[in-house]
Simulated assay, not measured.
Amino acid sequence: MSIGNSPDDNSPEDARPFDGERADDSASERLSIGRALRQARIAAGLTVDDISHATRVRIVIVQAIEQDDFAPCGGDVYARGHIRTLARAVHLDPAPLLAQYAEDHGAGAAPTPANPLFQAERIRPDRRGPNWTAAMVAAIVVVIAFVGFTMVKGGDSGNTAKPPAAKGPETSSGRPSSPAPKSSKPAQKPEPTDSAIAAAPRDKVTVQVSATGGRSWISAKDHNGHVLFDGLLKQGDSQTFQDKDKIDLVLGDAGAIELYVNGKKIQDDFQPGQVERLTYTKGDPVTG
Rank of each mutant, 00 (worst) to 15 (best):
I3N: 13
G4L: 14
S6C: 12
P7E: 10
A15G: 13
A15S: 15
F18T: 14
R22G: 14
A23F: 04
A23L: 02
A23T: 04
D25L: 05
E29S: 10
I33F: 11
R38M: 11
R38A: 13
R38Q: 15
Q39K: 12
Q39P: 03
Q39G: 05
R41T: 09
I42Y: 07
I42W: 06
I42F: 05
A44E: 07
A44S: 06
D49P: 07
D49M: 13
R56W: 05
R58V: 03
I61R: 12
I65G: 10
I65V: 10
D69A: 01
D69P: 00
F70P: 14
G75V: 10
V77M: 07
V77S: 13
G81F: 07
G81H: 12
H82D: 13
T85A: 15
A87R: 03
H91S: 15
D93F: 01
A99K: 10
G106Y: 06
A107W: 04
G108W: 00
N115C: 00
Q119A: 12
A120D: 10
R124C: 11
R124K: 09
P125Q: 01
G129N: 00
A138P: 02
V141H: 04
V142W: 00
V143Y: 06
A145G: 11
V147F: 02
G148M: 08
V152F: 05
V152D: 01
D156M: 15
N159F: 01
T160R: 13
A166T: 13
K167V: 14
S173I: 07
P176F: 13
S178G: 10
S183Q: 04
S183V: 05
K189L: 15
P192V: 10
T193F: 07
T193C: 12
S195V: 00
A196K: 02
D203G: 05
K204D: 13
V205T: 03
V207T: 10
S210D: 15
G214Q: 01
G214I: 03
S219I: 09
S219W: 05
H223F: 03
H226D: 15
D230Q: 08
S238Y: 11
Q239S: 15
T240Q: 07
D243H: 08
D245A: 04
D248E: 10
D248N: 05
L249V: 11
L251Q: 02
G252Y: 08
D253E: 02
A254D: 01
Y260E: 04
Y260D: 04
V261D: 08
G263V: 10
K265C: 07
F270K: 12
Q271C: 00
P272T: 14
L278A: 03
K282S: 05
G283P: 01
P285Y: 01
